[in-house]
Amino acid sequence: MDAQATAPPATDAASYLDLGITLALNNWPSLTLAVQSNWGGPTSDDKRAWLCGAISEMLTDRPETDAEDVEDVLIQVMNDEFDVVIDDESAGNVAVQIMEFKEQTDAGQFSAIREMWETWQRKSEQKSAASSMFKQVESRDEDQETDDEASDDDVDMGDAPALVRAPREKAEPEIDEDGFTKVVGKKR
């Protein structure tokens, strides 16, 4: 998630709704894969951020918007911006979740979005910790390789001989009494 989701938690209904939309879209596996794979080009992450804002704006400007409208936008943007055809029900599920967040924030209920935010924060911390551990292990492995290379126990095997294959004999074509060439299949 980018700067929008790493910002401090929201304080009013509109901010909570924006946070909920951002969390829902960042947790959508189809969009996450498209962004990570740069299927939308080098600005894939910016396109996701734009989509978050576009849905928020749509919900604000058009109060009659329902889950089907949001789903249509999600499917269209995935197709147009990321060249991904969504043929499972995931876009519908994300749209329903976003509309639930809208209903909750309109009623002043922010607990579901807060919980989702806290879960996201824990996952981000775990990923960060795992990433730094991986870098430490990778660094240690590189140090060991240089120590191993300096070891005198290595035996120089010289250059391996090139593999040479003897040329196959090409079979002469068989011609029958009518002048036709017999087709022979490959032996297996």
Rank of each mutant, 00 (worst) to 15 (best):
N27V: 02
N27L: 05
W28P: 08
W28V: 06
P29E: 15
P29I: 05
S30N: 04
L31V: 06
L31Q: 10
L31R: 11
L31M: 12
L31T: 02
T32R: 14
T32F: 01
L33F: 09
L33A: 13
A34S: 13
V35W: 13
V35Y: 12
V35C: 10
Q36G: 10
Q36A: 14
N38C: 04
N38Q: 10
N38A: 08
W39D: 09
G40E: 03
G40V: 04
G40N: 04
G41A: 00
P42V: 03
T43W: 04
T43E: 10
S44A: 14
S44L: 05
S44C: 08
D45F: 03
D46P: 03
D46A: 13
D46Y: 00
K47N: 01
R48A: 06
A49K: 13
A49E: 09
A49W: 01
W50N: 07
W50R: 13
W50A: 05
L51R: 07
C52K: 11
G53K: 11
G53S: 13
A54C: 06
A54Q: 15
A54L: 10
A54S: 14
A54H: 09
I55D: 08
S56H: 06
E57K: 03
M58E: 11
L59N: 04
L59I: 02
L59M: 13
T60G: 07
D61Y: 02
D61G: 09
D61R: 13
R62G: 01
R62M: 04
R62K: 12
